[in-house]
Design a protein around this nucleic acid. Structure first.
Lengths: 340, 340
DNA sequence: TTGAAAGCGTTACCAC
DNA sequence: GTGGTAACGCTTTCAA
């Protein structure tokens, strides 16, 4: 494929360095892979030559020879969604610190693409991080069988996972509203098949029941801004004095519509979001929201993955469960007095 | 490395398929790489066996043999920033449609990491997409020399790029405010060494001068929310009736502080953002903002890259320039009457 | 149209 | 410690 005799054109290889340094390619390889296995002087000489020639070990070739790529695959439903973007950032950052590269795949919320992409990536990564996977249990099992995987923000039997149930935070939210005198709250649900939406619904219902709070539910709904604007009117009509939305985006929709109608927040109605994204901290009024430790979610996922790669024989899949918490801001306040 | 004689343990290779299908590995390879070079019946048989055995060509090995990876590298300053997240999504989506995978690297706004990461990725991708690179011109030149690159949201001599100057949109914004009767506007600048911040500053200054508008500048500032809250007071004190912020996030900060002080938007003060991110559409009031065609930015970058890879001998680096436009929403309105 | 064999640039095993 | 050599799994001439 190359003219024998003539020097290779583009890149400098270990062979070139070896020749110039008076050692064998093996030694050059060792200088980069297992530096302690080579005598200091030799190593110094080799590294000097390498530096001078601008030699960098070819990671592709290394991958092929070693059978591992030092790369992690990350599959997210929508990278433009701040929720996933933050997780992605954490994963990326953590992985890099551990000298792993990251393959990113955005499925655009499409379960089938998710499955197909997982297969595509499977061949070129050491492990797969699946964030909020929507794919079916069967497909999931198949993927997990083919390549080491960690589930983020979803729980499934027999698969290592990292989750942060919003239960704690939502319970706190309900208690918070109750303490402020609210007795009737509206709950806006998320997408129909969303694992987290179901979890959140349960959590609010349960907490409200404990405190004898009335709950009016709306949804399931696509977790969009305009859904919030739409439901705001319904919640008002139902007589709720507080709204808990499935996520911040929907909560902002509520905020927007209430402002349009001249309903004051939090004086007339209190609003609670979830995920505590950038949206919550930058809105006016700032949004009381349930904080999910997204950074930790991403970092722990990487750690779990790396641990698994280092100990391939671990039997029981480790499940990491993180805690959520309520962050109180300006969008929640005392319930309006009945006689007002 | 493998026990000869015994079948390989983990993956099925082209050889396995070849054996079962009664052909040579070469043919199997051709069935996947250049399907038209093999007789239909043979191909069908091979593909059937491959399907049955669950064979998937090993992309790593292919990369090594071909010398190209069918992978694009994407380097962004901050994936958690909606601006870059949207570009990333577009790149990812476009690349995948063209059957390219994407390596993601987040530099966390760190110019040195940017350079180092570029070198790391250089070896394992066919091309590099550099988004808003902060690295020095020298480093940039070095990277570009080593691997085909396209600049996104930055312009540099001799390097193909895709940009969307906010000039048009900002000129429209200034005209918009002028038409509404505003005569004194505050301009909040972005980061000190930001190429786009400089561009935007010039654009506003120039447009304002044309219309004899008074401009009071603040900054350069880190483009953060709290910067906006801080500058809001200063702008008010300066007597400006309208604020143009370097981006949506800062504009939201202004909005927040104005609300705290009881200053009404847009009745008392008008506010304009830039980038038209999710933040702008979901704020209350919704933010008038300069839309940058982020999707197009990402897609065109990929197209440009792929075009370059297909025609490596192109001399003149193509520069794609996209247009921005003002999106008018609720945060801008008539200037308050002087006698009010 | 198909097969044989020589790479691609490393790593890893086995002698020395 | 170091060198020789066989993989890794595929692509790609070159013949047949």
């Amino acid at each position: 494929m190359n003219e024998p005799g003539k020097p290779r054109s583009g890149t400098v290889g270990a062979e070139d360095v070896a020749a110039r340094a008076g050692v064998s390619p093996s030694t050059v390889s060792r200088c980069f892979a297992t530096p302690h296995q080579v005598r200091p002087e030799t190593r110094a000489r080799v590294l000097a030559v390498a530096e001078q020639l601008g030699y960098r070990p070819n990671r592709i070739a290394r991958s092929l020879a070693q059978g591992r790529t030092h790369t992690l695959g990350l599959i997210v439903p929508d990278i433009a969604n701040p929720f996933f973007a933050v997780i992605t950032k954490a994963v990326q950052s953590r992985a890099r610190r551990k000298d792993y590269a990251v393959f990113l795949a955005d499925t655009d919320e499409h379960p089938d693409d998710e499955y197909e992409l997982a297969h595509t990536l499977a061949g070129q990564v050491d492990g797969l991080l699946l964030v909020s996977p929507r794919m079916t249990g069967d497909h999931l099992a198949e993927i997990v069988h083919r390549v080491p995987s960690v589930l983020v923000n979803r729980d499934a039997a027999g698969i290592p996972s990292v989750t942060a149930p919003s239960d704690d935070g939502l319970r706190q939210a309900v208690a918070h509203l109750h303490a402020l005198g609210h007795r009737h709250l509206a709950l806006i649900l998320g997408a129909r098949n969303s694992w987290s939406s179901e979890q959140r619904g349960h959590a609010v219902r349960f907490a409200a029941e404990q405190l004898s709070l009335k709950v009016t539910e709306f949804g399931p709904h696509e977790p969009k801004f305009h859904t919030g604007t739409q439901v705001a009117d319904l919640a008002l009509a139902a007589g709720a004095t507080a709204v808990i939305a499935h996520n911040d985006l929907m909560a902002l929709g509520v905020l927007s519509r209430l402002a349009d109608r001249g309903v004051r927040v939090p004086d007339d109605v209190s609003v609670v979001g979830a995920d505590d994204t950038l949206l919550a901290t930058t809105s006016t009024p700032a949004l009381t929201s349930v904080r999910i430790p997204l950074n930790a979610l991403g970092e722990r996922a990487v750690d779990l993955m790396l641990h698994r790669l280092a100990n391939p024989d671990t039997k029981t899949p480790h499940r990491t469960v993180l805690e959520s918490e309520l962050i109180v801001r300006r969008s929640t306040g005392p319930a309006p007095r009945k006689d007002a």
